[in-house]
Design a protein around this nucleic acid. Structure first.
Lengths: 193, 193
DNA sequence: TTAGAGGTAGACTACCTAGTCTATTTCCGT
DNA sequence: ACGGAAATAGACTAGGTAGTCTACCTCTAA
């Protein structure tokens, strides 16, 4: 493990824990590396932050494979993966840090805004578009439908976790199913068609 | 206008603009007040912050009157008010600042978490409960339904605004209607009942 | 007139932070 | 063995912040 990797790992951990306020001292201390070594590998703290955040985002928002065997099963599978990732402690932390530093790093945020939820909405929308042309869903703007589904899947839970008010989730996989079934009812093909 | 009010106003403006990093110097300077005057009225910066945030939250999340004339009209009225408030610049800023300071002020956040979205879900759920017993909606957990409606109304827009990526909203009042109509389809009474 | 409350300006302490610089050491390839 | 690249410890600069303290001012009420 190179010193650079050690620094990135320590930075990821500390930034996720403490936000951008995590000090360079703390990072090099956790990495077990000298101050100057840090500045040999990174121009400054902002560069390290940008790189660490990029790693976190691409790590958490992995591509998801939608198998078009059954519409409901595909959506439920997506729903569970999405919920699991977006509501995980890492998912919540990275969301918090992006929001709190959005004003300081507008370029970085713009660079990453296509990723995350945005990317997922895109791929989900194109999947839904096929279902619509196949008549398995009613005529509806696929982007709108995708956004509704994603919104319902996260709902109030992300906010509660961001606020540090975790609630008991006895029905983890159940919720994803409930939402998907509601979604299918909402956008079911018209009866008359 | 008393010095205390001047300080609170300046604090609200600066905290909403810059977050908790807004310095005491900047606040007293905008308030046009001496340093010692500030410490005469507030124990320290944290107390001022707590008070300013309390004002902002209670200002933005005003009670909403749901008139039970028509279910659809009531929901649309609620939807428009909720969207207008939650997506306003002040609504976005206060949401951002609460999230970014949630770890530093856990007690304050706990105190305010019942307000905002939480409070709205409660009153909306009790309204929906009546509609369910009246047979105007299908049998469903009213809290779940309320959460779904609120989630769809905000959707991805809050995130985009938090990230500073505002999108064009040509269809402002239309979106609220679309969501409410989708919601009513999702939770329509069962045909067989 | 005077005493006191509250405001003002600004110095001051104590502390933290990012980033630079220096002198020394370690280690690897030739 | 040796030379150079990279790492280390730690001092140092420059700047910012919260909060305290002192000395002075201003206005009001007894």
């Amino acid at each position: 493990m190179t010193n650079r990797e050690r620094l990135l790992l320590a930075a990821r951990e500390l930034f996720l824990e403490q936000g951008y306020d995590a000090s360079v001292d703390a990072i090099i201390s956790r990495a077990g590396v000298a101050r100057q070594t840090f500045y040999n590998h990174f121009q400054n703290k902002e560069c390290l932050f940008a790189e660490a955040v990029r790693c976190c985002v691409t790590d958490i928002i992995a591509p998801l494979s939608v198998q078009p065997d059954s519409l409901r099963d595909s959506l439920i599978n997506f729903a569970q993966v999405y919920r699991q990732r977006a509501l995980s402690p890492e998912g919540i932390s990275i969301y918090r840090i992006l929001i709190s530093q959005a004003q300081r790093f507008p370029d970085l945020i713009r660079e990453l805004s296509g990723l995350g939820d945005g990317q997922m909405i895109g791929s989900l929308a194109s999947f839904l578009r096929h279902a619509i042309t196949d008549g398995r869903l009613c005529q509806v703007d696929p982007d709108f439908a995708a956004e509704m589904l994603m919104a319902m899947l996260i709902g109030q839970e992300r906010t509660q976790r961001l606020f540090g008010v975790p609630r008991q989730t006895p029905d983890e996989s159940l919720k994803a199913e409930q939402v998907v079934d509601g979604f299918l009812r909402m956008f079911a093909p018209e009866q008359g068609a």
